[in-house]
């Protein structure tokens, strides 16, 4: 109670003071969880505007009008009505600036979203609230989290160049700074951020057809342009030669990712015979989970089944699926994936 009263009292005290009351008005607009939300700014919706009159609707045919105009050679001067985004960015001082990416006239514009995916709706209505309940950690009032000390190493020494230098990462090869596990609130409920498909085809070093088939399959499945990657080093054991193209990936976000996961979970995985689930050892400790599909499992995707004959059967690759979430631990990420319908088996990696 006292906590709530404080701002009012502060405001009253400020009023009594001779100092100008800067934030007097603020407490009036404060909203508690129990009070009603502010009403909408616009009282009427533009959708409630009555539709145009009957004859206006009937007589409106934009195609016929345009054809009539073209027949009479009375076309609108194109230069005046068509805008073209500049092909090159010439700096912020150039008078011809490109429009923002969200503008359809921009060269970088990408249309979308095209739908509200079912998985997204389920997440919003059911999964998010359940995850919050499941991972909630109660701290009694008065609890203050112990302070985390500096995890980066200081530069110790006499050198004057050590001043204001960025701190050093942990010592040792392969050591990384683990993510902090913040207490769960409604703001940091784990969600799926990206899904990456990765297909390694070392045979492509001899015959590039493998690479083309893998790329086509990945594009068909994911609806995203596939990106090919070169081998970075010579690895004799795997037959890799530096600089040769060996793998393709495609990275999905938002709607594509949701659609892909829904398809995978509801259509493909149930069709696989004796699929045990995602291995419990999966997870990098930073909220990303991955598992693999074999070539004949990959062929079960409806996009490939529909024209299976178009792909040379020996060249269909397997792939790895990495689901990236913004969870900060394996446990939370696994909870999220279990909620959307991916089972785990074996020893769990925590």
């Amino acid at each position: 109670m006292a906590l709530r009263e404080l701002p009012f009292r502060t405001a009253a005290a400020l009023c009594k003071d001779t100092r100008p009351a800067v934030r007097v008005a603020e407490p009036l607009f404060r909203r508690n969880a129990s009070s009603e939300a502010a009403r909408e700014v616009e009282s009427s919706s533009s959708l409630e505007v009555p539709p145009p009159s009957e004859e206006l609707v009937k007589g409106y045919d934009p195609l016929a009008r345009s054809r009539l105009r073209r027949r009479g050679n009375k076309e609108l001067p194109p230069s005046r009505y068509q805008y073209r985004s500049p092909k090159y960015y010439r700096g912020p001082l150039h008078p011809h600036q490109p429009p923002p990416e969200s503008d359809p006239s921009s060269r970088l514009f990408q249309p979308g979203p095209f739908s509200l995916p079912r998985l997204e709706q389920t997440y919003q209505s059911t999964i998010a609230a359940d995850l919050l309940t499941l991972t909630y950690q109660h701290y009694p009032p008065g609890y203050r989290a112990p302070k985390t000390d500096q995890r980066l190493r200081q530069w110790t020494g006499d050198s004057p160049y050590y001043k204001n230098r960025p701190l050093r990462p942990p010592r040792g090869k392969g050591e990384v700074l683990r993510l902090l596990n913040e207490p769960r609130t409604f703001r940091n409920i784990p969600k799926i951020t990206k899904v990456t498909l990765h297909s390694m085809v070392p045979e492509a070093q001899e015959n590039s057809a493998h690479m083309h088939v893998a790329g086509m399959i990945l594009q068909a499945i994911t609806n995203v342009r596939a990106v090919s990657h070169k081998a970075r080093h010579n690895v004799v054991g795997w037959g890799l030669r530096q600089g040769r193209y060996v793998s393709v990936t495609s990275t999905m976000e938002r709607e594509d990712a949701q659609d892909f996961l829904a398809k995978l979970i509801d259509v493909v995985l149930p069709k696989i015979k004796e699929w045990k689930g995602v291995p419990g050892s999966s997870g990098d400790g930073h909220g990303n989970m991955s598992f693999g599909l074999t070539p004949d499992q990959l062929a079960l995707f409806p996009e490939i089944e529909v024209n299976y004959d178009a792909y040379p059967p020996k060249m269909i690759p397997g792939c790895h699926i990495t689901i990236e979430t913004d969870a900060t631990s394996n446990k939370d990420a696994r909870l999220l994936l279990q909620a959307i319908g991916l089972p785990f088996y074996g020893k769990l990696n925590d």
Binding site: Q110, P111, G112, P113, F114
Partner: peptide
């Protein structure tokens, strides 16, 4: 009992989605 089916779209949402699909058809 959680929702069993997707929700009805607001007319603005469905109009927006159709607009984006047709835009995609062009691009």
């Amino acid at each position: 009992r959680p929702p069993q089916i997707t929700r009805d779209l607001h007319p603005f949402e469905s109009a927006f989605f159709l607009y984006q699909r047709r835009l995609n058809e062009r691009l």
